[in-house]
Amino acid sequence: MQEARPQRIDQRSPAQLRGLSLTPDFTAAALGSVLIATGRTRVLCTASLEPRTPKWLAHGGWITAEYAMLPGATSPRGRREASGRSKEIQRLIGRSLRAGVDLAKLVGPDGGLSIVCDCDVIEADGGTRTAAVTGAWVALEIALRKLVASDRLATHPGLGPVAAVSVGIVAPGGADGAEADPVAMLDLCYEEDSRAHVDLNVVMRGGRPGALSPDGRPGLVEVQGTGERGDFSRAQLDRMLDLAEAGIVELMAAQQAALNQVGV
């Protein structure tokens, strides 16, 4: 008899991403923008040119990020002021985006350029930080292409796409409310994340055509992982990283499809 496949709250398989959409040029004011929706999580990501680089930066350009969850993104209503969690997440987003750009080449005719990527969560159902990274890279890429097209940049400084996804060890809930043995699951929604035995966020960078690693696989940029209910094994970590890599390959394909809609 074939063993039943663990069912998730939204009937996905353990290795399946949530429904994903990326809508580029979602706003007109920003140099680059995208609305990313993954499941019920929605994040508006914009990339804007700043007039100057940080004072401590001697050469090249700079990329930073800001992250906020709008009060109505959760129930009950959240608070508008920045929290320690928000600051930690925006540092993660900034580090991730800088890994995808040669900052030494982010220089225009008048010197280094600075770009700030704003990530505002409209609705939250888990994975807001990973969705923000994936969406912010698309907004940033649109901005960089426009800067090249307008001769503000001589060459495109991109090193490859950057995307992120959550993965965890979660016990599937049965029809009777009982939990089965924990298994590795990709792209956790809030309900899964809240009862995960292990929670992992993975950021990876791909390469541009002709510049991929020898095996063509994306490389790790950052891994954030915690055993929420004890420890976890090396084998479980390897399984989660395998799931994350496969999911990120899909995310990068979606990023490219979104960019194909943009006329730059």
Rank of each mutant, 00 (worst) to 15 (best):
L241V: 02
F232A: 01
L159F: 01
T27S: 14
L35M: 07
A196I: 05
T130R: 11
R18N: 08
V203L: 06
A29V: 05
Q236C: 01
L241P: 07
Q236I: 04
V165N: 03
E179N: 06
R52L: 10
E192D: 05
A47R: 13
R40F: 01
R145P: 00
P157T: 04
L237W: 14
L200E: 01
A163H: 11
A149Y: 04
E66I: 03
A175H: 10
V198E: 07
C189I: 12
I122E: 12
C189H: 14
T155H: 07
A132H: 04
V198S: 06
V223Q: 14
E191N: 09
V223H: 15
R8L: 12
T38I: 15
V202D: 08
A171T: 04
G84I: 01
E81T: 08
P218E: 01
A139D: 03
V121E: 02
G19Y: 08
V116Q: 13
R195G: 01
G173N: 10
G100D: 02
A65N: 08
G207T: 07
R217N: 15
E123W: 05
R98Q: 00
I63S: 01
P161T: 06
A211L: 09
V101G: 00
Q224Y: 08
G168R: 12
L237C: 10
S21W: 08
S114C: 15
E245C: 06
R152C: 08
L70M: 13
A180Y: 09
L259N: 09
L153I: 00
Q261M: 05
I169Q: 12
S96Y: 12
G60S: 10
L103H: 06
W56A: 14
D215S: 09
G94P: 00
L106S: 02
E141M: 03
G19F: 10
V223M: 15
M69H: 11
T226Q: 00
D181W: 12
V165L: 01
F232V: 01
R42I: 07
D231R: 15
S75I: 10
G127P: 05
P54V: 07
L70C: 12
M1D: 15
A178M: 09
E191A: 11
L159P: 03
V165S: 00
H59N: 14
V148E: 04
G174R: 15
R234F: 10
D25A: 13
G84P: 06
V183T: 02
R79S: 12
G127R: 05
Q7P: 03
A257T: 06
Q7N: 11
Q11H: 15
P6G: 09
E50P: 04
V116Y: 09
R5C: 13
E66R: 13
L49Y: 09
E192Y: 00
G84S: 11
M69P: 09
V107F: 00
A244N: 02
S21T: 06
L70R: 13
H156N: 13
V170W: 06
A171E: 01
P157A: 02
R234H: 10
C117N: 07
R145D: 01
S83K: 12
T226I: 04
P24A: 05
E3V: 11
A196F: 07
V101N: 00
A68N: 13
A29R: 15
V133D: 13
R145M: 04
V107E: 05
V34F: 07
A180S: 14
A164L: 08
A82Q: 14
A257K: 10
